[in-house]
Each structure stands twice: as C-alpha cells, then as structure tokens.
Design a protein around this nucleic acid. Structure first.
Lengths: 146, 146
DNA sequence: GGGTATCGTGGAGGTTGTCAACGATGGAGG
DNA sequence: CCTCCATCGTTGACAACCTCCACGATACCC
C-alpha cells in the first residue's frame, strides 16, 4: 500500500498561497466597497498615483500580472468614476497614459487606509520582521517566472 | 503636498499575495491539464485521499475556503471522471462522504508529481527553511479569521 | 516605403466568487 | 410524539474574472 503518499494538502505552498490570498482579497474587497472600488481597480489607482508621469496600460498589465484587455475595463471603470484620465503620450501615440485626478488621489488615500485596516485582520498575527521576509519571498516568486 | 503618500503597491502584502498566488495557480493548472484536473478539483481529490474515512462536502468547503455550492460541482466533476464516489454516511444521512476510487488514488499520485514539478518554477528561488516559514505564515493568515 | 512588432480595444467562452433559496435530515424541548 | 430550528447538499442566478484571438492604429527597422 504505497499509493497516495503525497504531502498533505496543508503543506502545499500553492494551495496555502491561494487560500491565504483569497482570504485577504475578500477582506480587502469588503473594505473597499464603501469607496466604490475593488482590489483590482484599487491596484490600478494606486499605481497611477505613485507614477510621476502616469503609466501606460501595458505597464499596468505587466506589473499587475493581468491580461491587457482586463486593464482596459478597469481603467474604463475608474475613468467613469472620475478617478483617473487617459492622457495621450507625446512620445508614442499608441500608448495612453493613465493619470489620477485630484479626486482620484483623495479616494486613493481614504481607500488605502480602509484597505490597510481590513487586511490587518488576516495579517494581524505576523510580526514586522515576518512581513518583510514574506514580502521578499512573494516578490521573488513573482520574478522567478518573468 | 501630503496627498498620495500610501505605501507603494509593491509593498502591499495583499497585492503581493494575490499576484504570487495567481502565478503559482497558473503554472499548476497548466501541469494538471494533462491529467484532466485543475487546481480546484485536484485539491478536493487530495483531501479525499488523505482522509481515512472520507470527508463530508461541508468539511471540504471549510478546509478549502470555498462556498459549499462550489464543492458540489467539483465532486460532480470528479465523480463523473470516476475518481471519487459519494458514500452515504451512517451517522448522519444528510452528509455524503467523498471517498477516492483506486483510480482516483492513482491519478492523484501522478497529478501530484506533475503539480509539484510545475510549482517548482515559481517557487524555485525559495530555500527549504524559507518554505517552512512561508508555510507557517500562510497557515496563520488563514487561521486568523476563522 | 514595406514588412514587422507593439499598444489599446473588443468579443467569445469558460471558470470562479457570492448569495439566496429549497428539500431532506438531525436535534432540542415541550 | 410533535414542533421549531439548525445543518447538509443541491440548484439557480448573477457578477467578476481569466484566456485567447482578432482588429485598427501606430511605431520601428531596413
């Protein structure tokens, strides 16, 4: 009887990763709802805010790990809410830079505080040093594939 | 100018978690495809294999962090493929225990090897000690909410 | 200039997440 | 015994998400 000897599911990093991720995303989505955002659109808004000259949708897709066609819808949604604008890029007229409106920056700040507070529930048992190491590991997982 | 001062998105644990999770899930799904499974159904199969007397679908949903209605479809799929069976529980006739077939155990082993190998690509940069700490942290994130 | 590549966009099809019901069963209390 | 309430599995509906492909517009290379 040597069948079925694999590691238990509770030791599988892929499984633990997606279960924990779902947990945090759920909590964050609930907190962002009152600001009219979800994790996805919030991420786009944050990235637009932290880039000095705006970001092309291609760059957004790459950083977020999403298909470019999804970014279109997210930017559409944010633009309809008046939080970002699509600006023509001078250098390359194919690309459209996503830049936040003043209102977008305000919402980003308020939503950011709500999101951080909400994520504290699932992440509360982690110390500062642990968070740093977790950040480092997750970043390396991301870069391992390209 | 104190607007837009939140942490960069690359430091947000929730974001890093879901991006890394997506990466691993993508790689694992690709590897499981040749066995006719995806991450979800594979997880159910593994849990059914490691429980001595089978698991109720309720327990499956709790452990996986899924809605019970999703478990129904996953078990349907696995049962249609002949990998698990629904057994009546003697103690409580409401519950239906999910138990693997011999074929299910064989597939679970083969698929497990493929999944582990595939996950090695995104997780390759992590040492053994790091994996242990990552497991510990992800498990605590899960238990932090109940 | 002409061929090739990239950017944004749209659409199709399948998967997942969320929620509200329903029948069937179990359990507690009168 | 009977009634009220909780739980389990199941179904259905709907939104969100993922994946892939194709197109027009623009850029780059030669």
């Amino acid at each position: 009887m040597e069948v079925c000897m694999g590691q238990p599911l509770a030791d599988d990093l892929g499984f633990l990763l997606s279960r924990a991720s779902g947990q945090v995303v759920r909590a964050t989505n609930a907190a962002l709802a009152e600001h009219g955002l979800r994790v996805r659109s919030y991420s786009v808004l944050v990235l637009a805010c932290e880039a000095a000259d705006g970001l092309s949708q291609r760059e957004l897709a790459t950083v977020l790990g999403l298909d470019p066609s999804q970014v279109v819808l997210l930017v559409d949604e944010l633009a309809a809410a008046g939080l970002v604008e699509r600006q023509a890029a001078e250098a390359d007229r194919r690309t459209r830079l996503v830049v936040p409106t003043p209102e977008g920056r305000r919402v980003r700040d308020a939503a950011g505080r709500a999101a951080d507070a909400a994520a504290e529930t699932p992440l509360g048992l982690l110390g500062d040093g642990e968070r740093d190491r977790l950040r480092d590991m997750l970043t390396r997982i991301w870069t391992a594939t390209g």
